[in-house]
Design a protein around this nucleic acid. Structure first.
Lengths: 229, 229
DNA sequence: CCAAAAGTGTTCAGGCTACACCCATGT
DNA sequence: ACATGGGTGTAGCCTGAACACTTTTGG
């Protein structure tokens, strides 16, 4: 027991709410806990922050260790510090949320390592600790943020169709959007680059593929530009 | 040295960015540090989180102990966890921002206890630790938030004139606003209750006093109402 | 030829911006 | 009477919402 302090200290953890979109639904990645407390229960990926890593580093490390995820969009959400969050001792948790492209691909990768699964919002299991509350906070943030910052693209593959983008917004915001108005607005920002390819699948007209132009967006942002849907 | 842990733990602190408005200027409350590191330097009010108090409690306690402030608007801002924030050891700080009414009153109260002073944004001293960065983050948040949530009222006395409110917005946002459009918009929300009193001062027409109706605002908010300036 | 999704314009109403003068008061 | 800030209305423009049919493909 080598580490001694004059006053008792809270333990510090990170927890990550990982969002992904699977066709028409917003999904969350959860890990099945192997150990007590809450063994066998589903929980957000996360764990203790080491004394020699930053909070962001801790979050990325846990995402990779527990879910096999690398290079995802990651942003700090809120720090949860109520006294009885963890039955063992005082634990303060810095929560993050992550946005992942191509849900299917990562699911399998993750399932190899530990017991990780994507859950639809409408079909969530009971979660460990205060993770249901953290998830609700993250969802609120995602809904707010996606309407005025172009983070939606973090949830789509690099090449996507306008219908995919619209479906994503509908999944996150939870209501339908008018197709013509949506396209007019999104294309009006001139931040989507039409590709030479089209996506053909199914017995219908093929769809134009686009990619998001992050460089142009950064330039516009510096001039006080606002991306709003 | 009674408290022992298996792994080393970061220390946990809170720091508060306290905003106030003094006539035409946005001000920040700073504390002169008495001890090393950064002794004699100005810093944000804050200190260590006790193991038996929540983060919010710690922030409020520090505000009262160091600045004599009670019952202020307080909201968590961001958690700062880079490795070298504090030269002594690893310290993770949960930052808050606070909004106080009537700057002048609290200034004197605070100055009795410790060395606390209000600084204009344009006249900030060099700050301890990474507090300049925390302050910049808080300012960005305040500017963003004040445009779509009615937190401006937390910076004014309970009874205020429309000119005071407008001056506040101009101070926070850093640009001028058209008087007629501002009044039309603000009054249009029907959230300001005109009082029977007027405020008379100086050689000119007296101004109508208003108070904000938080109850009505909560009702509207639940219906998806957005307060925007 | 049929089913299925992609793609495309116009109209209308309401909100935002810009703008200049009279009013009530104290000195 | 004058200086000082308080208070008010309108017109043009732009943006957002509502709305339905044609096109292209695979089967």
């Amino acid at each position: 027991m080598p580490f001694q302090y004059e006053y008792p200290r809270a333990a510090l953890t990170v927890d990550c709410v990982v969002f992904g979109v699977d066709e028409h639904e917003l999904k969350i990645l959860l890990i099945k806990r192997g150990i007590e407390p809450f063994a066998g229960c589903w929980a957000l990926p996360g764990g203790f922050v080491r004394v020699d890593e930053t909070l962001d580093e801790a979050a990325r490390r846990e995402l990779e260790e527990e879910a096999g995820l690398k290079d995802v969009f990651l942003e700090q959400l809120y720090t949860f510090g109520s006294l009885k969050r963890d039955p063992r001792e005082r634990v303060v948790s810095v929560a993050y949320y992550a946005l992942v492209k191509r849900v299917e691909h990562h699911t399998t990768a993750a399932t190899d390592a530990t017991d990780a699964r994507w859950f639809a919002l409408s079909d969530l299991p009971r979660l460990a600790f205060d993770h249901t509350y953290i998830l609700a906070t993250a969802l609120e943030r995602l809904r707010g943020k996606i309407t005025y910052q172009p983070i939606g693209f973090e949830l789509l593959p690099p090449k996507f169709t306008l219908t995919q983008l619209q479906t994503l917004y509908e999944a996150v915001l939870g209501h339908e959007i008018d197709k013509r108005n949506f396209r007019k607005k999104v294309l009006g920002y001139d931040l989507l680059i039409p590709l030479k390819e089209k996506r053909r699948e199914g017995a219908h007209r093929p769809a134009q593929l686009f990619r998001f132009d992050p460089v142009k967006y950064e330039r516009l942002k510096k001039k006080g530009f606002l991306f709003e849907i």
